[in-house]
Design a protein around this nucleic acid. Structure first.
Length: 491
RNA sequence: GGCGCAUUCGUCUAGCGGCCCAGGACGCGUCCCUCUCAAGGACGAGAUCACGGGUUCGAAUCCCGUAUGCGCUACCA
């Protein structure tokens, strides 16, 4: 696997870039980089009706986000362009005409309505549905008559009635199909656009693609492609079908079960390096223990041989874990920079902008090891910003404490805190630990009351560090507010 | 219905005839650490390797069959 490959990712711009497709693109990219080959982006915009505006940009954004740069493609050009199939219509038409001339294809004038009825009957008779080849042997006169009626035909490939078509898939091994089970499929639609089958064969040949990497769902149509390669006199590429990514019900992942756009993971605060690592591990593994791999390690160690055969369910919990691992591995400044957009968006509108970046830098070490995704960072640090945290007064009173003892505890704490000149972590600890003992409390009881008073929460980063970041003024203000709440409760 | 592909802990997987009465990871449980929450550490539960036949001295690994699941079966890709 050292010869440079030419591989292509060929999405159709009919929707957002889903993880299944992106994973295939990653395999393409990895193989290209591993072998020093080329990764080509080709847009299969042959389904005019389903093409969605914006889909192309979204696909490119998704690839860029993951760092899957392409060597040839719509925007960067290349020697084998154009890279939009809609701009290569002439090529497909020529190929189709040639096949018709050679007797390997024919024009079909059957109406969609007739085909519909035909299929229904076939299914009713428990026959395999498929084109009945009515137009396969039309006489020139019959054809002329249809043309005269103004019917615009489609071009169908003349699949051999007998024999077998076989190929060796690099992952699944030998696959054999009886030609008799394949119907005469449409190559060229009546609107002049090719179907996937034709366009794919013509372009992969024209673009000198060496390996076709695509989802397992394409295995069944591979013999059609092979038959066309043969009829056209082209050398077929190597085929690499990859296992699918499944939904929780083991069915092909769809929008229904959250096959969300790869960009959605970006918005949800997953790091691109997490997605890259995680996605490649669905269906591929290095060995029996390595889970975290850098992009460079992946390029070096990637190989087709280690791609599995079985569809895999997308394991969200594991993704979350891995994202935590990657977040923790970030340098503080990197973590700050990546969190910034999420803070801008996620912090309450009442927090004044621009955000105080230095203040943020001081609190971020406290949340870095607690965040699983970037999108939850604002939640984690919100109490640092709000004027006065909102919380239920009961939370101030520890299970083993009373209203009175809590009031007393906070009052004494306030006095002592007020006397501090330098409000840092070490000094806070030196003050507070002995204070708990002095008050006859367990450290947790004192710290718990202070924690709630100062943050409004029962689960926060370590108290002293948190208070140090908050600063003396904010802490005292909040303790005062807490005491007020408690007094209200007692009256 | 036809054709094709697949089948190892709940999930992702290692395993390509003896090292496996099956290893790792996520998740889960217990414990340690500890001011809470995380993180980290230790330990544990969890798979008769879908089932049934072969082949072999020996099979999760090879062969056949069955079952189940999934995919394809469009003038979609």
């Amino acid at each position: 696997m050292t010869a440079p490959v030419r591989v292509r990712f060929a999405p159709s711009p009919t929707g957002r870039p889903q993880v299944g497709n992106i994973r295939t693109a990653m395999f393409d990219w990895l193989l290209a980089r591993h072998t020093g080959g080329s990764f080509i982006l080709r847009i299969e915009d042959t389904d005019v009706a389903r093409t969605e505006p914006g889909a192309l940009e979204a696909i490119m954004d998704g690839l860029r986000w993951l760092g899957l740069d392409w060597d040839e493609g719509p925007d960067v050009g290349g020697d084998y362009g154009p890279y939009f199939q809609s701009q290569r219509l002439e090529l497909y038409k020529e190929a189709a005409e040639r096949l018709v001339k050679q007797g390997d294809a024919y024009y079909c004038y059957c109406s969609p309505e007739r085909l519909e009825v035909m299929r229904k009957e076939q299914v009713a008779r428990k026959q395999p549905p498929g084109y009945d080849r009515r137009c396969r042997d039309l006489s020139p006169q019959e054809r002329a008559r249809k043309e005269a009626e103004g019917i615009v035909p489609v071009a169908r490939f003349k699949v051999p009635l007998e024999g077998q078509t076989r190929f060796k898939d690099l992952i699944y091994g030998d696959v054999v199909f009886e030609n008799s089970t394949i119907d005469d499929f449409v190559m060229l639609k009546s609107d002049g656009y090719p179907t996937y089958h034709l366009a794919n064969v013509v372009d992969d040949h024209a673009m000198k693609i060496s390996h076709v990497i695509r989802g397992e769902e394409w295995i069944s149509s591979t013999p059609r492609h092979l038959l066309m390669y043969r009829a056209l006199g082209y050398e077929p590429p190597r085929y690499v079908h990859t296992p699918m990514i499944l939904g929780p019900d083991r069915a092909k992942l769809s929008k229904r079960h959250g096959d969300v756009s790869i960009l959605e993971y970006c918005h949800q605060g997953y790091l691109p390096e997490t997605m890259f690592n995680f996605l490649v591990l669905i269906g591929w593994s290095l060995d029996d223990k390595t889970e975290i791999l850098t992009r460079q390690q992946l390029i070096e160690s990637f190989s087709l041989e280690r791609i599995g055969k079985t569809g895999a369910i997308f394991n969200k919990e594991k993704l979350d874990w891995m994202n935590g691992v990657y977040i923790r591995s970030l340098s503080l400044e990197d973590f700050v920079q990546r969190s910034l957009p999420f803070l801008e968006k996620g912090l309450p509108a009442a927090v004044k902008r621009p955000l105080d970046i230095d203040y943020i830098r001081r609190m971020m070490p406290l949340v870095q090891e607690r965040a699983k995704t970037l999108v939850e960072v604002p939640q984690l640090v919100e109490f640092f910003f709000v004027d006065q945290p909102d919380y239920n007064t009961e939370l101030l009173i520890d299970k083993k404490m009373t209203l009175e003892s809590t009031i007393k505890t906070l009052e004494v704490s306030r006095q002592r805190l007020q006397l501090m000149e330098v409000f840092d972590e070490a000094l806070l600890e030196n003050l507070l630990r002995p204070l708990a003992e002095e008050l006859g409390l367990k450290a947790g009881q004192l710290f718990g009351a202070l924690r709630t008073a100062v943050t409004g929460r029962t689960a926060t980063p370590p108290l002293f560090q948190t208070m140090a970041v908050l600063g003396k003024e904010r802490c005292l203000k909040r303790i005062n507010a807490a005491l007020e709440k408690l007094h209200q409760l007692s009256s």
